[in-house]
Amino acid sequence: MTIVFYTASAVAIIATILMLTRANAVHALLDLIVSLLAVAVIFFVLGAPFVAALEVIIYAGAIMVLFVFVVMLLNLGEPATRAERALLRPSMWIVPSVFAAILLAEFIWLLVSGDVPPSAVAGIEAKETGMALFGQYLIGVELASMLLLGGLVAAYHLGWRKVPQTEATHVSHP
């Protein structure tokens, strides 16, 4: 299990790095999908198969498909790739690299100090997840659902197109 965990982690990290350095949007998205799948494997190894399945279904299977869908529709092509390549200059890397270095330092310090909380050994079932969501964290779920409902209504409103009152719509029938 440890080997699986570290392999999956390595895949996740490498895929994320690749995702950041790709100039082509679709290739970057593909790397991100691989990274998400690796994270799902990590969840599974840590004893949360339900969350792992949700990660695959929702993140990799639904949200990323939408991203790919939109990128496909935009049909970016060669000019966009060139623009992206210009954006990936070393000077653009400094600030994110500094932040990432801070996080890495914190992580190393945690590992060295030995204060790491033990990972969950017992498997967490779907039922327990549901009980927690609709018991302890009910308000969070409700807030999220209200946010999603708001988004839904807004999307519906934006997508609503008034049929223009043109001559063509008033075709008289004999």
Partner: peptide
């Protein structure tokens, strides 16, 4: 979570 696994794979 077999059923979810199948759904996940079909969504991939």
């Amino acid at each position: 979570v077999g059923l979810l696994f199948v759904l996940g794979m079909s969504s991939l």
